[in-house]
Structures are given as structure tokens and as C-alpha cells.
């Protein structure tokens, strides 16, 4: 009964903690989908597919964007606002590039006969990659909002919490893509 948290300073900021819980629930959603995928794959009528080459490039882009996000966060912590702004802008651009590449990938897939409705395997591919892309789009929108705020003269913000949260989320969608990509490469 004597477990008292006296050192309150060391506690994680509640908003950051909240984001961790959000990430857990997103993980559950993708875990549900990928386990459904595995079960379906072991049943009849499953066609295998080749992932478009462009997904390799998009993977490289999103990994790179994780690095720029990291640098950006460090710059903010060291109060190098110019560097922070530049890196945040680059991250946003890389995020947009990623989405464009995914869209091209989808275009190529449907061109090569892998359409949404032809086989349940293809449907799964579209749903998994599409849902991930939606999560990245959400991140890009947030990044854009942050960028607009950074470049506007009105607000002065010196709290690192939003930057840290943005970076957490961005690394999460990055890791999620790596997971999905490896998953789709290994199990198809």
C-alpha cells in the first residue's frame, strides 16, 4: 500500500501517453487484418501476387523521412529553429512523395490485372496498403498544419511536446509500413 509516486516530474506527459494508447489500438486493427489475411491465405482460392517495384522506392522514402523527422526534433530541442523548419518541410514533402508513390503502385497493380475484386488476396492487399496510406495522409495533414504554424508570425511555441508527438506518430507509420511490406513480401 505504500506505492506512492512521489517523483511526479519523471512522469510521461499525458498527451504523449495518450498517443501511445492510440498507437496500441491502431496496432490492434492491423493485427486483426493481418491475422485475417493469414487465415484466408490457408484456405482455397488464394492467388499469389507480385508487389510493384515502386513499393521498394516508397519504403526507402518513408525510412528517409523518419530520419529527417528525427533531425528536425533534435533541432527543435537545441532551439535551432531554422533547421527545424527546413527538416519539417522536407519530412512533409517526403510524406507526400510516399503517398504519390503508393498511388502509382496501385495504378500499376490494377494495370497488371491485380484488381480489387478479382481475388480475395488482392482485396486484402488493397485494404492493407490503403488503410496504411490513410494513416500517412493523416500524418501529412498534421505536419502541414505544424508547418503553417511554424511559418506564421503569430504563434510562438516553445513546447517540445507537439513535436515529440508528431515524431512518435511518424515513426509509427514508418514502422507500420515496414511491417506490412515485409509481411506482404514473405506471406503471399
Amino acid at each position: 500500500m505504500d506505492l506512492i509516486m512521489t517523483n511526479q516530474q519523471k512522469r510521461i506527459h499525458p498527451h504523449k501517453f495518450t498517443l501511445w494508447v492510440v498507437i496500441c489500438s491502431m496496432v490492434m486493427m492491423f493485427a486483426g487484418l493481418t491475422s485475417a489475411y493469414i487465415i484466408k491465405r490457408n484456405q482455397a482460392n488464394w492467388l499469389t501476387f507480385e508487389l510493384p517495384v515502386i513499393f521498394w522506392y516508397s519504403s526507402a522514402i518513408i525510412i528517409l523521412s523518419s530520419f529527417t523527422m528525427m533531425i528536425s526534433k533534435r533541432a527543435f530541442a537545441e532551439r535551432e529553429m531554422g533547421k527545424y523548419r527546413r527538416m519539417l518541410a522536407i519530412t512533409t514533402l517526403l510524406g507526400i512523395t510516399f503517398i504519390v508513390l503508393q498511388a502509382i503502385g496501385f495504378y500499376q497493380l490494377s494495370g497488371s490485372g491485380i484488381t480489387l475484386t478479382r481475388n480475395v488476396a488482392f482485396s486484402f492487399l488493397y485494404v492493407l496498403v490503403g488503410l496504411h496510406a490513410l494513416h500517412v495522409i493523416g500524418g501529412v495533414i498534421t505536419l502541414t498544419v505544424m508547418l503553417v504554424r511554424v511559418f506564421s508570425r503569430k504563434s510562438r511555441n516553445y513546447s517540445i511536446v507537439p513535436v515529440e508527438m508528431m515524431s512518435m506518430y511518424w515513426h509509427f507509420v514508418d514502422l507500420l509500413w515496414i511491417y506490412l511490406f515485409v509481411f506482404l513480401l514473405m506471406i503471399r
Binding site: V21, C24, S25, G32, L33, V127
Partner: peptide
């Protein structure tokens, strides 16, 4: 709720 509702969401999306 946080761990189980997302799975229902994925079922509903499909």
C-alpha cells in the same frame, strides 16, 4: 475497449 474495438472496425471495413 481500446484493444478490441479497432478489430471490430477492421471487420466492419471489410
Amino acid at each position: 475497449g481500446v484493444l478490441s474495438f479497432p478489430v471490430l472496425l477492421s471487420g466492419a471495413i471489410l
